[in-house]
């Protein structure tokens, strides 16, 4: 096992109504996925400002997956606002020479086990390959 202090951590912001129970469903199926994943339950990821994502990378988070409800978002208009925000974050990431693949916006439903595993594995492959983020 890799020593935990060098762990390349993936933060997952999972919506309370879709993706978080989706992650529970993966657990119930006992599907294994990388351990370096930290799932935080959120009401709507639209609440996070651009700086939150940059701060996370600065603090040493290697990848962030936003698992939203997508078009099934219970807050009308939130998904669109979120997508716009993420575009803005990408611009800021480029300015700071951060690989924008470290941040991904997805939609995961309550029983989307395969989609969940795919996203997590893809992000893990990426962060293992490109390593910890380097920021000033």
């Amino acid at each position: 096992m890799e020593s935990p202090d060098k762990e390349k951590k993936i933060l997952i912001l999972a919506t309370d109504s879709c993706a978080y129970p989706g992650a529970d469903s993966v657990g119930q199926a006992h599907s294994s996925y990388p351990a370096n994943t930290y799932i935080l339950r959120v009401r709507a990821p639209v609440m996070f400002p651009e700086q939150f994502y940059l701060d996370c990378f600065k603090k040493g988070i290697s990848g962030i997956i936003i698992m939203s409800c997508g078009e099934e978002c219970p807050y009308e208009g939130a998904y669109k606002a979120l997508a716009t925000r993420i575009d803005a974050v990408y611009q800021l990431m480029k300015k700071q020479d951060l690989d924008i693949r470290r941040l991904r916006l997805t939609a995961i439903c309550t029983v989307c086990n395969r989609a969940f595993l795919k996203e997590v594995n893809l992000m893990n492959d990426l962060v293992q390959e490109i390593g910890l983020p380097e920021m000033d």
Binding site: V46, M47, F48
Partner: peptide, 8 residues
């Protein structure tokens, strides 16, 4: 609604 769109 408690979505937090304002917070950001």
């Amino acid at each position: 609604l408690g979505c937090g769109a304002c917070v950001a």
